[in-house]
Amino acid sequence: MNVKTPSKLEKILAAGHLAVTSECGPPRGTDPEVIVKKANLIKDHVDAINITDNQTSVTRMSSLAACIHLKLLGLEPVLQMVTRDRNRIALQSDILGAASFDIHNILCLSGDHQSFGDCPQGQNVHDIDSMQLLQTVRHMRDEGKFLGGDEIKRPPQMFAGAAANPFADPFEIRVPRLAKKIAAGAEFIQTQCIYNLDKFEEWMRLARERGLLEKVSILAGLTPMKSAGMARYMKNRVPGMDVPDELIKRLADTPKEKQAQEGIDVCVESIQRLKEVEGIRGFHIMAIEWEEKVPEIVERGGLYPRPEVD
């Protein structure tokens, strides 16, 4: 088993298991119990837990602090880091800080624009972009050096990941863009929520043909729908989201009180179908403020129990 970091997620993937990750959003306050509670709902059913970084540009407890809370519980966090709010000094500094707590996974993102959040009049930084953050993480880890060239004493050991949206426009560059992220240093990919399975499978096919799937572990991103209303909202209001009309119809045709269960069923069916897709290495289940449903999805998806690795 060839691994480069102490990451449990990396070890699970290297052992050939289908990995399962999920995510928790930190609270809009200082109570650590919020994150502990969410984590406890899912900890036995996932291998690692992403902590979002001020998602949708709404100010929250820092991702790093919340990751430390998980680490103190003995759990495996994935530190999400966006390039919107920090320059290269702060990003490198936070990478060191995270690594000092043995946080071994990082997901490099650009972040939603601040106009969506609670500080639309704020500056954004974008000193480097998400690909350059990947390069930075790999440079710090593999070369043991800062961007400025100085040596790092005890370099960070982080398994480097990126997001990919197979559904964003323009479609013709979705696979070249994946190739670019791999070239920048991505070792795992957590995709945008998949609802259009045909289009996703097409993206996987093109990536496979280019030989990209041997170089990166793709975790298929899934978010269960709570209602037909949520499905419509995702389709119409969330940038880069592809929700087929048949799915909206399926939910809308279900009695209102049963729509949430139908959404879970859809999610489980997606796992069952995508498990058969060559090159899928795991699942990233983003049950937004619905963490209690993750165990059911994982169990019914045939992904339980989770494997043990050293």
Partner: peptide, 20 residues
């Protein structure tokens, strides 16, 4: 680019338009 992304587009690009 609203995020001055040098290796774009970001995930917010939809039908040729910016997420903002």
């Amino acid at each position: 680019c609203a995020k001055r992304v040098l290796n774009g587009p970001c995930g917010g690009s939809t039908s040729g338009h910016c997420e903002i």
